[in-house]
């Protein structure tokens, strides 16, 4: 995978962030990666409107996107059975890297989380991860989104699990903040047991 290439040309990318400058920065990075069709949304309302009007290939969404927040937006996208973008890959951008927040993003149906401030390499690697690590979707009464079952490797305090996954204590604590590697581990799709 390290030698794989990404071709973002003609992909429709929606960057949803309240900061015009942050959008500009994200778009600059995406242009550098070869993207030529990036759009902006400054609020969850704008984003929903765009998502209902046209097909998007990937959504980059700020965790604090007003007024509803990026995670509520993610849930809204996943729960709407009539939304043509229901399975669109969603990458949450956040500077709040507390374990509880990352788990909430995963449980809302996000594909991956990238920590802010973003660097080109951190964004590229997350996009690459989504591209080359496809996961099944789960449609359950309380959840619709990428399969959240994962193998825990190198993450000391434990994370949420399902029956059949490796037994491990689940921490109720909200801290400490996680490094990007720990965040990635939370989204690792490999199963155990």
């Amino acid at each position: 995978m390290k030698n794989a290439t990404l071709n973002l040309r003609d992909l429709v990318i929606l960057v949803a962030d309240p900061s015009p400058y942050m959008c500009m920065l994200a778009n600059s990075m995406l242009r550098g990666f070869g993207a030529n069709k990036a759009m902006d949304a400054r609020s969850s309302i704008d984003a929903i409107q765009i998502l209902t009007e046209q097909k998007i290939d990937i959504l980059l969404c700020d965790n604090l996107l007003p007024p509803h927040g990026g995670l509520k937006l993610t849930q809204a996208i996943r729960r709407n059975v009539n939304n043509p973008n229901r399975t669109v890959p969603i990458l949450i951008m956040t500077s709040d890297t507390r374990e509880s927040t990352i788990k909430s993003a995963r449980d809302a149906g996000a594909n991956m989380v990238v920590a802010k401030p973003m660097s080109p390499s951190s964004l590229y690697d997350r996009l690459s991860w989504i591209a080359f690590n496809p996961r099944n979707f789960v449609d359950a009464p309380t959840y619709f989104g990428p399969d959240r079952r994962f193998k825990i490797e190198g993450f000391p305090t434990g994370v949420g699990r399902r029956q059949g996954d490796k037994a491990i204590e689940v921490s109720d604590e909200t801290g400490p903040t996680l490094a990007q590697d720990d965040i990635d581990n939370l989204f690792n799709s490999s199963r155990v047991g």
Binding site: L6, P134, R135
Partner: peptide, 13 residues
Amino acid sequence: EFPVETDFQKKVR
């Protein structure tokens, strides 16, 4: 549970 190959995954490769 069902497999999903999104347009993103198809196009980006």
